[in-house]
Amino acid sequence: MSRLTVNKTYKLYIGGKFPRTESGRYYELKGKKGNLLANVSHGSRKDFRNAVVAARKSFRGWWEANAYLRGQILYRIAEILEGRAEQFEDELRAQGSTPAAARKEVLKAIDLFVHYAGWSDKFQALFSSVNPVASPHFNFSVPEPTGVVAAVAPERSGLLGLSSVIAPIIVGGNSGVVLASQSRPLCSVTLAEVINSSDLPGGVVNILTGMRDELLPHLSSHMDVNALLLCSDDPAEQKLVQGEAVENVKRVRLHPDAPLDESPYHILDFQEIKTTWHPVGV
């Protein structure tokens, strides 16, 4: 018997919910043969504003969650990704990847979450120090999360690029608002579903889809965004972001338009070093 297919609605992910864009706009995503893959939410600056509010609200709770728990939650993201690998492969293939490349990308994304899950309770020890000082004090320097981080995921990679941006931001205790690839947005919504069922508190990760050139100025000018990660090869975009970020001295990190490799230094990118003096006892 024939049946009507049930097509997925690709929405945004803000504050642990999946709203449509408040603007009501969408754009059509076409496959290789010009077939319609999906109507993708064309997020607006107000969606971004709402996402920042959600991220700010969840930041402190996530920061104060213990490192072990953060690692467990990241590991759980990997677990659920593994179970839904096929769906991601299908989406990657629909957006132009070969079956082998799609398979490889999904596996790498899973491994990436496991990699960062492991770092959750170790990077702090690695990047901390006890400093020699010329007075009777202990002097420690320890990393603390920067706050709300906005990120522009690589354009040329649908799943791995997005994952490689999200994982190091959140494992360090930040909350994030991530703009997904405009031309490869399908995996972003599915990844949001994975994240949503992983016990990550709502608002820690917010994922938007939409037009990069439209949203980029707002990402970089928002006063309540503490840091910004831009994956781009375009000097004009880099200049725009750096210029706008000046107003509230946002920390800006630039990366090429490709997935970030697995490295604890990407965690350190969104950590601030806090130094504490403590008198030496008897």
């Binding site: 000018s221 928002h222 309540d224």
Partner: peptide, 9 residues
């Protein structure tokens, strides 16, 4: 200013 604001300020 056209910029979204932060409670920090």
């Amino acid at each position: 200013t056209g910029r979204y604001q932060s409670a920090d300020y």
